[in-house]
Simulated assay, not measured.
Amino acid sequence: MENATLHNEKELLQQAAAGSEAAFKALFMHYWPQVYGTSLHLTKSPEQAKDLAQDLFLKLWENRTKLAEVSNVAAYLYTSSRNLVIDYQRKKVFNADNVDYLIQFFTSSDTTAQQKLEYRELEEALAAAVNTLPDKTKEVFRLSRYEGLSHDEIAQQLGISVHSSRTYITRALAEIREQLSNHSDSLTLLFILFISRK
């Protein structure tokens, strides 16, 4: 749930942008629940959520001069939190529980019509991207990501080396990621969830 706007928020933003630690602390105390809550909702890990929320406020302080330009703090922090989570998840492999939760989050009956539309767009965009891959690359990608085979199993089934299997996957992911680069962050996140599965 978003917090109510601070009565003196504009003034606090100006003061924080000018370097006031007291003003920044007031913003921190007021918006911490929102930032932590957003991170927790997306990661399902209290420890990760706390670390990411702290990282976000640290980045805000390091770039505090930009705070004077912010008109909607709640929206700004939500977007920043979401992007930070996405960036974090790009750098790590999801565990199965996290993947299943986030996919369920975007496809459950509780999601909005917009979120469901984005998920359908992701499925279509991903399928189209996979279909443009060279035949061997496509075959390796499907065996890995759709059928869950390991590189050893793929190599044995296709009569190629494990190194070749890894190379094909690397090429496939680079090409698909490039084709999906124009989609929204939520689509990108779902794609990352999908391709990161073991």
Rank of each mutant, 00 (worst) to 15 (best):
N3G: 13
N8I: 00
N8K: 08
L12D: 12
L13N: 10
Q15W: 02
Q15K: 11
G19Y: 08
A23V: 02
M29P: 00
W32P: 02
E47W: 02
L52W: 06
Q54W: 04
L56W: 00
K59V: 01
W61H: 04
A68P: 03
A74W: 01
A75D: 09
Y78F: 11
T79A: 11
T79G: 07
N83C: 05
L84F: 03
D87R: 14
Q89A: 05
R90V: 01
R90T: 02
A96V: 06
N98H: 15
D100K: 15
D100I: 10
I103E: 15
Q104R: 15
F105A: 09
T107D: 11
S108F: 05
Q114V: 06
Q114N: 06
Q115Y: 07
Q115T: 12
E123A: 12
E124C: 02
A127F: 07
V130E: 15
T137S: 14
F141E: 06
R142H: 08
L149G: 05
D152C: 01
A155D: 06
Q157S: 12
G159P: 10
S161M: 08
H163V: 05
S164W: 11
S165H: 05
T167I: 04
T167W: 09
I169L: 15
R171S: 07
A174W: 02
E178L: 07
L180M: 10
S181W: 02
S186Q: 11
L187A: 07
L187E: 12
L187Q: 14
R197A: 12
